[in-house]
């Protein structure tokens, strides 16, 4: 999952540095993630994992780092399975 997220970030994040150089807990905003690009990354993730971010996850914190995005996606896919 993390690699898939990294790929999406690399494609849509518009980062000035290669994603491979970023640690899982690196601050993506400090690395140059703009608010516009963060929405594009969200869209990419929604499509790739077939999830929809609820409003309470649509904030800066959820997209602060690769680890934070992974937690958010795990939460969404996990809860979806639990509901079935």
């Amino acid at each position: 999952m993390k690699q898939k997220i990294r790929d999406i970030l690399g494609k849509h994040g518009g980062l000035p540095v290669p994603v491979e150089t970023l640690a899982d807990d690196a601050d993506l905003y400090a690395a140059g993630l703009s608010s516009f690009a963060s929405v594009q990354v969200m869209l990419g993730i929604e499509e790739a994992f077939d999830v929809e971010f609820p409003d309470n996850l649509l904030n800066r914190k959820s997209f602060q780092s690769i680890a934070a995005i992974t937690r958010a996606v795990e939460g969404l896919t996990g809860s979806a399975e639990a509901a079935e």
């Binding site: 000035p16 400090a30 690395a31 140059g32 993630l33 703009s34």
Partner: peptide, 10 residues
């Protein structure tokens, strides 16, 4: 920018 090597949005 936060320092001389910082991204334009940092």
């Amino acid at each position: 920018r936060a320092h001389t090597d910082a991204a334009s949005t940092d």
